[in-house]
């Protein structure tokens, strides 16, 4: 039996990038903080370019703890949503016209979020990656790490629990 010819790489990339862009561009708070996402295959890295308005301690100076918390939480939500979209795309259950039409899966809701401040957030760009440790039908647990200059010297980490979209009713199909 002949395997179907793989799709051209550009078509695949375009579909994935369009889905990611729609997901990120749709959230005003992500735009307010200026957070962007870099994609390599299914792996996302969040980027928070430094801006004066993100300062929390003008004397040091240092990034505001609330900015750090928000950056971690945004990274966790986008990663979790992205993992759902990715799966749908890979299974062929994703309408490629949906992102452009603003039709994306509903976002997960944060139940709780714990952030550890490990070092001062310096006045420069920050990066973060999240890992979905458990994603069930109703709940998900996501760990997220953020760093600045050195990947091994985290300045903050966090764990978040989420209620999955449709998880409130407990009557979700599939």
């Amino acid at each position: 039996m002949m395997r179907p010819r793989p799709e051209p790489v550009q078509i695949v990339k375009q579909r994935r990038d369009a889905a990611l862009n729609a997901l990120v561009a749709g959230v005003p708070f992500v735009q307010f903080l200026g957070i962007r996402f870099d994609r390599r295959g299914d792996e996302l890295t969040a980027l928070l370019p430094f801006d004066e308005k993100l300062i929390g301690n003008p004397q040091l100076p240092a990034i505001h703890g609330g900015v750090t918390a928000a950056f971690l939480e945004v990274t966790a939500i986008i990663e979790l949503s992205w993992s759902m979209i990715w799966q749908a795309m890979e299974n062929g259950n994703f309408d490629p016209a949906a992102p452009a039409a603003g039709r994306l899966p509903r976002l997960p809701k944060t139940i709780d979020f714990t952030v550890d401040y490990l070092r001062t957030g310096l006045p420069r760009d920050a990066y973060a990656r999240a890992r979905v440790n458990r994603s069930g039908r109703r709940y998900a647990s996501v760990h997220v790490e953020a760093w600045q200059d050195n990947r091994s010297r985290l300045f903050a980490q966090g764990t978040a629990h989420f209620l999955m979209p449709g998880g409130e009713t407990g009557r979700q199909n599939g």
């Binding site: 005003p28 708070f29 703890g65 609330g66 900015v67 939480e73 945004v74 939500i77 976002l107 944060t110």
Partner: peptide, 27 residues
């Protein structure tokens, strides 16, 4: 503030904005 919305469908403020408020208030 519409700039702080986290869920465009419902217009609910992002949790990250609420955490910044609580963090500042705690400090």
């Amino acid at each position: 503030d519409a700039r702080l919305v986290g869920d465009p469908e419902s217009g609910v403020i992002h949790g990250g904005a609420v955490s910044a408020l609580m963090d500042t208030c705690g400090g």
